[in-house]
Design a protein around this nucleic acid. Structure first.
Lengths: 159, 159
DNA sequence: CAAGATTGAACTGTCAATCTTT
DNA sequence: AAAGATTGACAGTTCAATCTTG
């Protein structure tokens, strides 16, 4: 915890940026080009909603979970609703609130996309790491955002 | 090296994605909002050009180094040239080739931005990692793209 | 025809402004 | 006035088509 950026940290930063851009793009592309799968961003939305209580979530909460702005989410949700993968539901207690809810079709899309997603993550990421390396990596990267999460922790056992 | 994605690897992937999006955005924003600094993307271009031979590089090579498409780079370079930070230079031997070259003004912009960039990387990334962790991280992440780099290695000691 | 680079059209994400509800 | 969400204007990205040179 020094106040000035060390060389090791700077080099690690470089690897972080480069590895992410390479790997992420490849996974993204794998999902885009495979037939029967949804774009990464949609996958993410479906995945989070699927695990949420009643398979629905407030748009604000969803925007925090996945990482987008509210306005971007509004637009994604519109498109996904057009595609029939999710449904908008108004909240009765507070009419400002909109829920996004996975539809049966959305659930199917998630199930169809999962093998493609899994295979891509394995190919471009998992394949290159031993179990030990993967665990180390998770632990180290966790330090980068745990501080944030402690602030915005509204996630009450929603795993 | 298994053929199926393991749980450790999948969890590491999750950390990878989340940590990157959080950290990267914050660094990006730090550069955008600080006065006298250039956007991250421009910084990256200036940084790479600055270290290149004669402070210039072919657009194709540059596009490979930083991670963008050629068309995106063409447009960035145009804007940066408008801003006076880089200069386009035609190649005499092969008139298809365009070089991008850092100008004095570009060099100054790089120097002005560096402390801001360094501070942001330290604040949102380096601060959270010990030297050992940083080294481990770099080593592990290196495995993710070394395979790619071996294929496209045209980088003859350009460090 | 291939390689380097550029352009146009379409798309996506972002900021600020706005609308509704509390 | 603040919170949740949406919209319009705009900037940046991408794909395919194009232009020029080799």
């Amino acid at each position: 915890m020094r106040s000035k950026l060390g060389l090791s940290q700077f080099k690690a930063w470089g690897s972080f940026i480069v590895s992410h851009s390479r790997v992420y793009r490849q996974v993204e592309r794998a999902l885009e080009t495979a037939s029967g799968s949804v774009p990464y961003h949609w996958y993410d939305v479906l995945f989070v909603l699927h695990r949420a209580k009643d398979r629905r979530m407030r748009l604000s909460d969803l925007a925090e979970k996945i990482v987008t702005s509210k306005s971007a989410l509004t637009r994604s949700i519109d498109k996904m609703a057009d595609a029939g993968l999710i449904k908008r539901v108004q909240c009765n207690e507070d009419k400002r609130v909109q829920y996004a809810m996975v539809t049966a079709k959305g659930h199917q899309a998630l199930k169809r996309s999962w093998p493609i997603y899994r295979a891509a993550v394995q190919e471009y990421f998992g394949k290159h790491l031993s179990n030990q390396e993967a665990k180390q990596l998770e632990k180290i990267l966790g330090k980068l955002f745990i501080c944030d999460d402690e602030k915005r922790q509204k996630d009450r056992g929603g795993a």
